[in-house]
Amino acid sequence: MKKIINDPANVVAESLRGLAAAHADILRVQEDPDVVVRADAPVAGKVAVISGGGSGHEPLHGGFVGRGMLAAAVPGAVFTSPTPDAVQAAVTATTGEAGALLIVKNYTGDVLNFETAAELAAAEGLEVRSVVIDDDVAVKDSTYTAGRRGVGGTVLLEKITGAAAERGDSLDAVTALAQKVIGQVRSIGVALTAPTVPHAGTPSFDLGEGEIEFGIGIHGEPGRERIPLEPADALVARMVDAVREDLPFSSGDRVLLFTNSMGGTPLVELYLAHGIAERLLAERGIVVERRLVGPYITSLEMQGMSLTLLKLDDELTELWDAPVNTAALRWGL
């Protein structure tokens, strides 16, 4: 294992200190329990949109804390759900009379711990709602979930609900919007190599030199199948078809296409794949109106990629375009 770390047990804490030092104008980090909080939180009269999960997927979620996106993010240990007390601390630090929306990826530990925290916050008199995102089309069930996993669509959900909260929408309205996004977003991922969790020191799974794991999860969970390494045209076509056929997306649909690196894929390959995906969607009459390309929900150093499609309408497009100022996403300011 070759990593730029000290003690594997301190990786997350030390990384959070670096995040706070680099972006003190946007966020602050509370320790024990660890929570990343918007620098000006709590913001009076604004719904607090909060998310979190295991570390190792950076910039998700801490990199999306700031104006126009998350009020707080709760980082667990690497690939490990955050504890209920940490989620509760995030709610307490950011939530006022307008209430809070918890965005939870569909992993068993995340769902249980965020649910417990919501109950604790309610006991304190705070109004808290939760939504669970499950956009991964690869599997119906997996090692970590009951049902589909929450993956790349999480980034789009956090941006759009964060923009709605920023413009002053009510908790009911932000929650309804979140459910709308969840119903219209789908993702698929592939892996060429496995990630190595610092405290484990060895790759999470074995993958042959000539193999691709098709339908991989963001923790290295098994996908649909292992396939032989194939050219980018064939691989991206396989991914586009898997996502397109699930909702399904059809000719005339307006979409946001998110082409994501799993951490180890260089941008030269990612843009190559994105260009293929755009061409294939255009051939099917699907209109790509918005795009996002880069490493936004990763799996440590895993070499691989994911594709996410979100069906757009005027409201979702307006909220996507709304100003955002976070460590990882910034525009419109």
Score class of each variant (00 low, 15 high):
residue 221 E to I: 09
residue 221 E to Y: 06
residue 221 E to H: 11
residue 221 E to S: 07
residue 222 P to M: 01
residue 222 P to I: 00
residue 222 P to A: 14
residue 222 P to F: 02
residue 224 R to F: 01
residue 224 R to N: 03
residue 225 E to R: 14
residue 225 E to N: 04
residue 226 R to Q: 09
residue 226 R to N: 07
residue 226 R to P: 02
residue 226 R to W: 02
residue 228 P to R: 13
residue 228 P to A: 15
residue 229 L to I: 07
residue 229 L to Q: 10
residue 229 L to G: 00
residue 232 A to Y: 02
residue 232 A to E: 07
residue 233 D to Q: 15
residue 234 A to D: 14
residue 234 A to N: 08
residue 235 L to C: 08
residue 235 L to K: 11
residue 235 L to R: 13
residue 236 V to N: 08
residue 236 V to Y: 08
residue 236 V to R: 12
residue 237 A to M: 06
residue 237 A to K: 14
residue 238 R to I: 02
residue 238 R to C: 02
residue 239 M to G: 00
residue 239 M to A: 10
residue 240 V to C: 13
residue 240 V to W: 04
residue 240 V to L: 07
residue 241 D to E: 15
residue 241 D to N: 13
residue 242 A to P: 03
residue 243 V to G: 08
residue 243 V to C: 09
residue 244 R to I: 05
residue 244 R to A: 11
residue 244 R to L: 03
residue 244 R to G: 00
residue 245 E to P: 00
residue 246 D to L: 01
residue 246 D to K: 13
residue 247 L to S: 06
residue 249 F to Q: 01
residue 250 S to F: 03
residue 250 S to D: 07
residue 250 S to Q: 14
residue 251 S to V: 03
residue 252 G to Y: 09
residue 252 G to M: 11
residue 252 G to D: 07
residue 255 V to S: 08
residue 255 V to M: 11
residue 256 L to R: 10
residue 256 L to E: 05
residue 256 L to C: 11
residue 257 L to V: 06
residue 257 L to T: 07
residue 257 L to G: 05
residue 258 F to R: 05
residue 258 F to H: 15
residue 258 F to C: 02
residue 258 F to Y: 15
residue 259 T to N: 12
residue 259 T to H: 03
residue 259 T to F: 04
residue 260 N to E: 05
residue 261 S to V: 12
residue 261 S to Y: 10
residue 262 M to I: 01
residue 263 G to R: 11
residue 263 G to Y: 09
residue 264 G to Y: 04
residue 264 G to L: 06
residue 264 G to V: 05
residue 264 G to D: 04
residue 264 G to E: 05
residue 265 T to L: 15
residue 265 T to Y: 09
residue 265 T to G: 01
residue 266 P to Q: 09
residue 266 P to M: 04
residue 266 P to L: 06
residue 267 L to H: 09
residue 267 L to S: 09
residue 268 V to F: 12
residue 268 V to D: 10
residue 268 V to P: 00
residue 268 V to S: 14
residue 269 E to W: 02
residue 269 E to R: 12
residue 269 E to C: 03
residue 269 E to V: 07
residue 269 E to G: 02
residue 270 L to E: 10
residue 270 L to H: 09
residue 271 Y to N: 05
residue 271 Y to C: 04
residue 272 L to E: 04
residue 272 L to P: 00
residue 272 L to C: 04
residue 274 H to C: 07
residue 274 H to E: 12
residue 274 H to F: 03
residue 275 G to M: 10
residue 275 G to W: 06
residue 275 G to R: 14
residue 276 I to R: 15
residue 276 I to S: 09
residue 276 I to W: 03
residue 276 I to F: 09
residue 277 A to Y: 10
residue 278 E to D: 11
residue 278 E to W: 00
residue 278 E to L: 13
residue 278 E to P: 00
residue 279 R to W: 01
residue 281 L to R: 08
residue 282 A to V: 04
residue 282 A to W: 01
residue 283 E to W: 03
residue 283 E to G: 06
residue 283 E to P: 02
residue 284 R to Q: 15
residue 285 G to D: 07
residue 285 G to L: 05
residue 286 I to D: 07
residue 286 I to T: 10
